[in-house]
């Protein structure tokens, strides 16, 4: 009996703890959004972050997409061969990249790069009292640090996804024409014929949501970092893990919302 109540107690505490964490993160997100909308704005910071988050993530996202597009072509060719349906390779590569793999893999790569970098930077700033110093210099850290990062990621990750889609499709084309005997012009024609605007558009919307979540997790964990190097390390790990899980979970929900009949 007492074992039962004890385990219910533990479960209850965990549920409450999780709910409290969700509440804190939601509150943080709303405050960031509020600061994004209300002046003063910090255009210089935004520009720096657009470069740091968007531009410097291009190689990582591009390479990921290239190899994924190539592997996808091989798999679909092998799978399609079982039904004599090898001709679906171009369309499925394109749809798969645009709807799922482009945004999800791009988002995860950005989570690894950007959420970690933001959490480590802001965590270090917290630990070395730079965030306190900002406050005493009449500058709101949420507005100066969090808002530009979250806005920059929300704006640039869709662009990264678009580039990733194109490179992924190109990877599929490269493998299909060089290894699987597809005719280049026919492949490209097929891709263009089957790919619809919403295939790409839905992926871009996902990219915006993922970008928002990645930067939000980086900022939240960084600004709430514990003391010392250990605190910063933990904040960085938590930022990457929570951003990755949130990307995969929200991806499912968005797919359900966009495409379930």
């Amino acid at each position: 009996m007492s074992v039962l109540t004890a385990s219910f107690g533990t479960l209850g505490r965990q549920v409450l703890g999780t709910l409290a964490a969700i509440g804190r993160v939601t509150g943080f997100a709303l405050r960031v959004l509020g600061h994004m909308l209300r002046p003063p704005y910090y255009p210089r910071e935004l520009l720096t972050q657009l470069l740091a988050i968007g531009w410097y993530s291009l190689p990582v996202v591009g390479l990921t997409a290239l190899f994924t597009g190539g592997a996808l072509a091989l798999q679909i060719y092998a799978g399609g061969a079982r039904f004599n349906a090898e001709a679906v390779v171009p369309s499925i590569v394109a749809i798969g990249m645009a709807r799922e793999l482009g945004p999800v893999l791009g988002g995860l790569m950005v989570a690894g790069r950007v959420a970690a970098a933001i959490a480590a930077e802001l965590g270090t700033m917290k630990v070395t009292e730079q965030i306190d110093a900002l406050t005493t210099l009449s500058t709101n850290p949420m507005k100066f640090l969090a808002a530009p990062r979250v806005l920059a990621a929300t704006l640039t990750v869709p662009l990264l996804v678009a580039v990733g889609d194109a490179i992924g499709i190109m990877g599929g084309w490269l493998v299909s024409t060089s290894r699987l005997g597809f005719n280049s012009a026919v492949y490209l024609q097929n891709t263009a014929d089957f790919l619809q605007v919403w295939d790409v558009g839905s992926g871009l919307v996902k990219g915006a949501v993922f970008g928002f979540l990645v930067a939000l997790m980086g900022c939240y964990h960084g600004m709430n970092s514990g003391r010392g190097a250990q605190g910063v390390g933990r904040a960085t790990t938590n930022a990457v893990v929570s951003a990755s899980v949130l990307i995969l979970a929200s991806n499912y929900l968005l797919t359900e919302a966009f495409f379930s009949a």
Binding site: E121, M125, T128, E129, Q130, D132, A133, L134, T135, T136, L137, S138
Partner: peptide
């Protein structure tokens, strides 16, 4: 309120960026 104050932090707390 904060505009009235200047603060030198023990660790310096300079913005390293």
């Amino acid at each position: 309120f904060l505009t009235k104050f200047g603060m030198l932090f023990q660790g310096g707390a300079l913005f390293d960026s």
